[in-house]
Design a protein around this nucleic acid. Sequence first.
DNA 1: CTTGATCCTCTAGCCACTTGAAGATGCATC
DNA 2: GATGCATCTTCAAGTGGCTAGAGGATCAAG
Lengths: 148, 148
Amino acid sequence: MPPHSIGELASLADVKPPTIRFYEQIGLMPAPRRTASDRRVYEPEAVARLAFIKHARQLGFPVEAIRTLLDLADHPERSCGDANRLAQQQLAAVEQKLSLLASLRTELSRMVSAGCDGPAGECRVIESLSDHGHCLGDHGPADSTIRS
Amino acid sequence: MPPHSIGELASLADVKPPTIRFYEQIGLMPAPRRTASDRRVYEPEAVARLAFIKHARQLGFPVEAIRTLLDLADHPERSCGDANRLAQQQLAAVEQKLSLLASLRTELSRMVSAGCDGPAGECRVIESLSDHGHCLGDHGPADSTIRS
DNA sequence: CTTGATCCTCTAGCCACTTGAAGATGCATC
DNA sequence: GATGCATCTTCAAGTGGCTAGAGGATCAAG
């Protein structure tokens, strides 16, 4: 397998070139060698490393956790206790978000199915938002930032 | 009912004072009158408005949507079509996140329950992250940012 | 009159990127 | 060899929705 340009690596791992440069900047990806004209040249190993990072990010691991996981993957002789602990934490975080989102869905679908057509003064949606009756308990804020 | 200081308003709506100042800055809360010594003084109506905003944020509505919803609440004679559409969009967004998180949970709990104890070289967690076999489809990245 | 809580403004930081400016290089075509 | 366009380079700033801190003024209680 030949080496790759940043654009090739990007499309192989389905990320964008600036993301790879960003990962290099924060030290998740090692700085690759360069051509005479300063372009990045990636060896085939970089594909697997970038895929590992992407997979971990898809699972919601924070960058600092990924740093630890990559470090373990780079040093197979160490104990994998940290990896297990991080995975458990991430599972707990995901389960917490799931239960929060499930209650948001309940309230939103109540709002939506009460759907109305007239003036905003009688709007069920706005009424629901003003109403503290069916309000959620003391959950934190929901988060509207899953992209793509 | 008497007017409130920013701290009173904050504790009535269970948000922090800087959040109220931030909402004022971005135009969700109107700038209130001030005392001679420049402190903010809120009329009782402000409590309901802030509660509306907080409730909508808890449900995950983005600030721009809340701006529209507040605008409708302020003008009851307009049609509430926008409010219904926003609520439907938000419900769809929440449902999408739910299904993404459900598949994350599946993969994470497979990783966690395969739990291992030895060197990282044989770690199931790291193996799973390197493995493209059970990999998720083309979901976007998960998001690790639900606070509180 | 002192103490401590609360308030003010302003700036910077968080996370994980994304976007844009301004310019160099590479490759295909005429 | 000139043209044109895609891709690459660096660096800076923007995104969302706040949160935290500096440095100072004011308030209420004892």
